[in-house]
């Protein structure tokens, strides 16, 4: 069991002059190493909640602890150097090169030149920016490249927690999807805690180990994507996840959510396509249809088979209560 990275206790925020609080009495625990997405429409309070973590916004009441320490214990500047921050508009410094942008926090922390330079190379490789972009200015880069710089800059000081406010919101669908995949891979590899705000349901479900659905300043439901789909706590959550829309469900569920364990007697035929365990059931179905197969192998990041999927497993399962939930709860 991991420790807690973040804990919100009865946090509220009332903006001066506003009739209703933007965030109302929110309590939430975020485990270390988890990827939590905050999902909601604009005005749901998700961004306010995020920005209270690095004290860009101060809560009206309640407390927030970061690894057990109240965030108000330290000066805001010191706290922020240990928390990565990525926003939709990137907020890159237009007068600084890619290299200078990425080394912002190391510079503040006073690292020596060679260490900063090595760190920049390491990060550019991590976010897959070619080394020859080091001396470019942000406006010479595409939107996707700019956000890669944004992510690299946020991770430069090796923060344990990353806050991301709709970082991929302004990107085209293809770029967004590949950045999502890379972010997931980076997070899996480095084990950082990520708090990620989005209004895009499929993004929230694709990225989050846990999805926190917010509406009107309160949490409607917090749980794994599977829990939200199979046991929506409120009508709002049910509506958000698409109700009985089968295609929506297939898109939101991952291969690993429905896969069967591998066993000796259930050898997969050679012709079976393979899908990543984090791929959606929709893309698994697509693969099966394309290959005319009724089964697919589920593989992990290293390409090793970890389970199998059959067409039967893609059938809609009873949403609430039913025996089926128990079945795949076991396989999780």
């Amino acid at each position: 069991m991991n420790g807690l990275a973040l804990q919100f206790k009865g946090v509220s925020k009332l903006y001066p002059g506003a009739a209703d609080p933007a965030v109302r009495d929110v309590s939430l625990a975020v485990e270390e190493g988890s990827f939590v997405t905050l999902l909601g429409t604009s005005g749901s309070g998700k961004t306010t909640l995020l920005k209270m973590v690095n004290r860009i916004i101060e809560p009206t009441s309640g407390s927030i602890t970061l690894f057990g320490r109240d965030i108000r214990e330290r000066p805001a500047t010191e706290l922020r150097r240990g928390i990565g921050y990525v926003i939709q508009q990137t907020g890159l410094f237009p007068h600084m090169t890619v290299e200078q942008n990425i080394s912002t926090v190391p510079d503040i922390l006073g690292w020596d030149k060679s260490r900063v330079s090595a760190r920049v190379s390491e990060l550019m490789e991590l976010v897959r920016l070619p080394e020859d972009m080091r001396k470019r200015y942000p406006r010479q880069l595409s939107g996707g490249q700019q956000q890669r710089v944004g992510i690299a800059r946020a991770m430069a000081g090796d923060p344990k927690v990353l806050l991301m406010d709709e970082p991929f919101g302004a990107l085209d669908a293809i770029t967004r999807s590949s950045l999502q995949d890379e972010l997931l891979a980076i997070q899996r590899r480095l084990g950082r805690t990520v708090l990620f705000v989005t209004h895009d349901v499929s993004e929230a479900f694709k990225l989050g180990d846990r999805v926190v659905v917010m509406n009107g300043g309160v949490i409607e439901q917090a749980g794994t994507p599977l829990e939200l789909l199979t046991r929506p706590a409120t009508d709002f959550v049910r509506q958000l996840t698409g109700g009985d829309d089968l295609f929506q469900l297939l898109e939101l569920l991952k291969a690993e959510d429905r896969m069967l364990p591998l066993s000796a007697e259930s050898m997969l035929p050679e012709s079976a396509p393979s899908v990543q365990r984090t791929d959606s059931l929709k893309s698994a179905l697509e693969q099966m249809l394309r290959h005319g197969a009724s089964e697919a192998a589920v593989v992990n990041e290293q390409g090793e088979a970890v389970g199998r999927l059959t067409l039967d497993r893609l059938q809609p399962q009873p949403r609430e209560g039913g025996a089926d939930v128990g079945v795949f709860a076991e396989t999780l």
Binding site: N54, I56, A76, T77, E78, L79, R80, R81, I83, Y85, I87, Q89, T90, G91, L92, F93, P94, H95, T104, V105, I108, R153
Partner: peptide, 27 residues
């Protein structure tokens, strides 16, 4: 100076003086 640039700078942990010298003045 874009508000998002200013916000990013303080979110990186820049104090007011550094923000002025390194970001606002050059821009």
């Amino acid at each position: 100076v874009e508000p998002s640039v200013r916000e990013a700078a303080s979110a990186m942990g820049m104090g007011a003086g550094r923000l002025l010298r390194r970001v606002e003045l050059p821009l």
